[in-house]
Design a protein around this nucleic acid. Structure first.
Lengths: 186, 186
DNA sequence: GTCTATAGGTAGATAGAC
DNA sequence: GTCTATCTACCTATAGAC
């Protein structure tokens, strides 16, 4: 614990907020520096390049999602794999509301994610594979995408920002489960 | 019908492709001009500003979506309103695969859309209102967003680009209908 | 209808003072 | 750890030739 404020952490928070507003490619280092109240040169003290900032912004969300996918893959039966996956996805969405929306939508952020294949490791593809299950029909693939993209997009939408974490988590899980054809009992 | 190629139309197609790759704010006039094989000045012959291009790119999709929402609102019973809305949304998604994905995800494009409120007219809000119905519980609101954003995001996803229009349309409609709790009969 | 040329500004990135 | 100053490259946009 240092006495100084955590400038690096504040920088990442600031960058995420600006990404949500202007997209990654629309967010200049100047904008980040201005919003943070420092100069561009100060930003370069923490990160060597612009891409490195975006990379650091998405890292925590990517870590949590990878853990959720791994937990789902560990289940033996298909039904349990799907349930565990959607449950873990809902948790990740709640913990990273803004980030997950950009992850699905902003082309600039997607470019960053795909460029760093090492850490990425195809986590989205693994998630879809779990949701699709052993019979990869077109219908099953589309249903998996609708559930995953619908839950992610909704979790980051400003229109549901008024819901508290528990309400949103439960409602996302219900809708996503129905989309893949596994409605939850009440 | 002119002998000359439709440069203005090619320009809009080119811009949409670049938007999908780099986002609206990451797409410069230079990139558009280069991809088109002309100079920036030629681009300015057709459009006075950068925003005007983005505006023209989204206009056809916005028109079709508005028509679909209006048709749904004209139905008397809630069930018919939802069915008509999802059916119309699926059609719009099929006709504008790339655009609809950006519409939901790219912050730069959303800024353009919201800036032109006249043509916009809150069509997204009207669509959600139709899907939510007379009882706007948090669960119903979330389900409406999951269906709409899930269908839109999936329709523009490169992973389903191999499906033909009819296959994708039917699968999107099935998954979206289940998400809002109105599963279709087969 | 497309071009060259250029204005005026901002981008990412670096060097070196404090 | 943050600053000033600066580089080169690119940006949007305009003026005017052909």
């Amino acid at each position: 614990m240092t006495e100084a404020v955590d400038t690096r952490g504040r920088l990442l928070d600031t960058a995420l907020g600006l990404y949500a507003e202007h997209g990654v490619e629309g967010t200049s280092l100047q904008k980040i520096a201005d919003a943070l109240g420092v100069t561009k040169a100060a930003v370069y003290y923490y990160f060597k390049t612009k891409d490195e900032i975006a990379h650091a912004v998405i890292e925590p969300g990517l870590r949590d999602l990878r853990a959720a996918v791994t937990a789902a893959e560990a289940q033996r039966r298909h039904g349990a794999r799907v349930d565990t996956m959607l449950d873990g996805l809902a948790d990740v969405i709640i913990r990273h509301r803004t980030l997950v929306r950009l992850f699905n939508g902003d082309p600039g952020l997607q470019r960053i994610v795909e460029a760093s294949v090492r850490e990425y490791g195809g986590v989205a593809e693994r998630m879809i594979a779990v949701l699709v299950g052993p019979e990869p029909t077109p219908e099953a693939r589309v249903a998996a995408f609708v559930a995953a993209l619908g839950m992610s997009g909704t979790g980051g939408a400003p229109e549901v920002a008024d819901l508290d974490d528990d309400q949103l988590r439960t409602a996302l899980l219900d809708a996503g489960s129905r989309a893949v054809g596994r409605p939850r009992r009440r």
